[in-house]
């Protein structure tokens, strides 16, 4: 048994070491936030996710697409079927070609993907001094540090320290590697008016939009945590029963 523990320890040490090695790449240690979806029993705070969608829609979507999200997905964070239809209907979506061979615009439907601000990457770059605002549907999974990192970036803008030379058009961000960040600070107090009356401070908006984005990247989390609990409980019971059976069967040998 000691050998088993030793082996487990070496494997864990190895895994931990690589994780640490990866994390050590960052500029500053990331401040840890508290998220409703943290931990084994975590779930998405739907009210927060809805506020986050509002922040995305009114602020971020000017530059950033969420191409893997469909309007119908919004039902998962608590919007009703009618609300989803209304949200979709508020967008113009390109469809076609029609019988004349032309592409045309029509109001969005629930089954449509949420359209992005630009028709293609080149248009996006042209509108943003050559920088490409990345798609946000997976951003939380695509960055080391996940939600904490995105939150830190959104709240990490400050004046560059004395003597630090900023490149043309860049913004100083504490948590971005190299500190030269192409995106200007997107959030300012009361940039958005929340429907539920929550005061729209920068930390609040950042918190909510990160909750929304984490859901966007990982919509299965609630399901996954719930079914995971059942599976693991089942396996614990099964392990116990199989162990007892093993001891019983092996009794004459020992």
């Amino acid at each position: 048994m000691a050998k088993r523990a030793f082996a487990a320890a070496t494997v864990s040490a190895f895994v931990l070491a690589s994780a640490i090695a990866w994390a050590a790449d960052e500029t500053l240690p990331l401040p840890r936030q508290e998220w409703s979806f943290d931990g084994v029993f975590g779930t998405y705070d739907r009210a927060s996710a809805q506020r986050g969608f509002q922040v995305y829609k009114e602020v971020c979507s000017v530059c950033h697409p969420v191409k893997h999200l469909h309007f119908r997905d919004l039902a998962e964070i608590g919007y009703s079927e009618d609300e989803v239809k209304a949200i979709a209907g508020g967008y113009q979506v390109t469809d076609g070609p029609n019988d004349e061979g032309q592409m045309y615009q029509r109001p969005g439907r629930a089954s449509d993907p949420i359209p992005g601000p630009f028709p293609n990457d080149q248009a996006a770059r042209a509108a943003n001094n050559g920088a490409l605002p990345p798609d946000q549907s997976l951003i939380v999974k695509a960055r080391a540090g996940g939600p904490d990192y995105v939150y830190a970036i959104l709240t990490g803008y400050k004046e560059p320290p004395a003597g630090f030379k900023m490149l043309e058009g860049m913004n100083y961000n504490e948590y971005f590697a190299g500190h030269q960040f192409a995106m200007p600070p997107p959030l300012s107090d009361n940039a958005v008016t929340f429907a539920d009356g929550t005061p729209a401070t920068v930390p609040q908006m950042a918190h909510d939009v990160v909750t929304f984005l984490t859901w966007a990247a990982e919509p299965n989390l609630d399901d996954r945590h719930r079914s995971g609990l059942k599976v693991i409980l089942f396996l614990v019971v099964a392990a116990g029963v199989f162990y007892a059976a093993k001891r019983k069967i092996w009794a004459p040998i020992h």
């Binding site: 199989f242 059976a245 019983k248 009794a251």
Partner: peptide, 16 residues
């Protein structure tokens, strides 16, 4: 201990 082992095995089989 035979019947207890049968029960255990039966449970194990059922769980599996």
């Amino acid at each position: 201990g035979e019947t207890r082992r049968d029960f255990l095995l039966l449970t194990a089989g059922a769980i599996g």
